[in-house]
Structures are given as structure tokens and as C-alpha cells.
Design a protein around this nucleic acid. Structure first.
Lengths: 141, 141
DNA sequence: TTGCTTGCAAAGCATTTGCAAGAGC
DNA sequence: GCTCTTGCAAATGCTTTGCAAGCAA
């Protein structure tokens, strides 16, 4: 189940209740949570956990390549547990929900060399924007 | 020269020294500035201008569709004066430089309906990441 | 004159950090 | 026991807001 915990242990991570809970939350969910949402869920299992610990831990996981940060429109960063497999994002313009989309081809090929301005391009991130089913139903302007 | 000012006047904007200066800065530059950079430049021409006014004005211009906000990696938002023509961005992973790239086709067509999860998708933004020529020359790890 | 705009300062979020107390190995 | 980790609270960075004075039309 928790491959993530195994990998972290293998990397010499000191295992604490806080880290176990955070890893568990990320591992079990395919939604992209904000740090605050992770904290809220973690606090349900471990009431004393502090926000700082959540931030620190998420930051470390990003550093280790286990998580990717996704920032959209200057809102709070969201953490993407699916960092090891390349993919793109579908974002709801209203509520901010993010879903993963697995690309059907290599997006890099979309940028012809003559448009690269001398850049050594290594990745391409695509953000598709629109309204999620829930927000689209909501007909308020 | 300043088409932007003309358009704003046409939309009934009350013309003030602050707005004139801000519009002028955006119109004259192809770089994507942060709000703070806009404020710094504006203050050179109009020392009393306040940060709040810069933020408010930039926000209004975004609302009017004259500017686009570009947020990368949770840093400060940058304002893109080229909002009227759809395009994507080439970002240097090291120094943060952003260049515009004009797409050669409609990126929306890349996302087949069965991968849309019920979203009503309206736009697709692509961020190509890599090293700009200057940073790529720099061989330091 | 009328009411949109500005500037100030304070408030608001999201996130980071310093440091002493606490827990893993 | 030594060191890494945690929690608290304060600090930071970016941005927004309330409100009275100012200025364009």
C-alpha cells in the first residue's frame, strides 16, 4: 500500500507520527491538496500536528521528487503525489479543483526549434482551464 | 503609440496621471513585470504613486482583458501586456525570464473529450521550461 | 458638483523561520 | 545521547481593503 513510506524509510528518513500521517494522506488520494487541506486532514488523525510541520514536510517531499508543486493563478500551491509520471492538469477556473490528465503524445514536439529562442527546453506543462461539472451546473453569472 | 490609452479612454476610463503612467510602462515594454516592478518604474515618473493604486489598476486591466496574469511556481504574479493575442510561455528554470511563444495550432484539440472528466474546457496554457541561452552557457551545476 | 480614484495604513493569506522542547534511532 | 523533528509564534512576501481626501469630467 504505502510505497511512499517505504521509499522514504529507505532514504534514511526518521519516521515520526506526523510524517506517517502526511505520507498516508498523499498516498491515498489522487486529488491535489493545498498545504492547508493536508493539514486539516492530518489534524483529524493527529490533532496536535502543526501547520509548520506540514509545510516543512511537503517541502522536503518536493525536494526529494516525490511530490510536485502545482501553482495556478497565484492561489495556494497544490501538491501533486503523481510526480513520477509526466502529466498535465485540468483546472476549474471557479473552484480551483485540479485533475490529472495523461498526455497522449510528447508535448515538446509542439514547439518547433525555430520558436525556442535559443532555450534548451526540457519540459512542457499544460494547464487546461474551464469549469468542472459542479461549477458548470451552477448557473449563476 | 499608446493604443492602450486610447482603448481605455474609449471604455470610459477616467484618466489620471497614475493610470497614464502605468499604461505607458506596460505598453512600452515587452517584458513581463511584477506588480512591484511596475510600481518601481511608475515611481520614477510619479514619485507619490502608491502600491495599492498599482495593484488596483493592474487588477482592472486584467478584468478588461488588456493584461494577463502569469504566475509561475508561486512567485509574484507577472503581468503580460500581450493578452489580446493567445500565446504560450517559455520560462527559464534558472533566472525566471519569460518569453512569449505564439502557438502554431489550437492546443485545445490535443485534449480529447474522453479525457475531459466532464469539464467544460475553454483554454489551454502551455509553459515550456528550460534554460535560456545565457543560463545554458553558464556551466556551473 | 458628482462620484470615481487615490493614498495611507491596516488587514489578509500563504508560507517560512528561529528557537527551545521533544522524540527517533 | 546525539541529532533530527516538532510546535509555537513571530516574521515575511505579496496582495487586498476600508475610508477619508482628492481630482476628472
Amino acid at each position: 500500500m504505502s510505497d511512499l513510506l517505504e521509499r522514504l524509510r529507505g532514504r534514511g528518513w526518521r519516521m515520526t507520527a506526523q510524517r506517517r500521517v502526511i505520507a498516508q494522506i498523499l498516498d491515498g488520494d489522487h486529488v491535489h491538496l493545498t498545504a492547508d487541506e493536508v493539514h486539516t486532514r492530518a489534524a483529524r488523525l493527529l490533532p496536535e500536528i502543526s501547520r509548520a510541520t506540514v509545510y516543512n514536510t511537503l517541502g522536503e517531499l518536493v525536494g526529494l521528487g516525490e511530490l510536485a508543486e502545482v501553482t495556478v493563478d497565484g492561489r495556494a500551491k497544490r501538491y501533486d503525489p503523481n510526480a513520477r509520471r509526466p502529466h498535465h492538469h485540468l483546472v476549474c477556473a471557479r473552484c480551483g479543483t485540479i485533475r490529472d490528465v495523461h498526455p497522449t503524445g510528447d508535448p515538446l514536439t509542439r514547439l518547433p526549434p525555430d520558436l525556442r529562442f535559443g532555450f534548451r527546453v526540457t519540459t512542457a506543462d499544460i494547464v487546461y482551464r474551464g469549469l468542472c461539472p459542479d461549477c458548470a451546473d451552477d448557473t449563476r453569472a
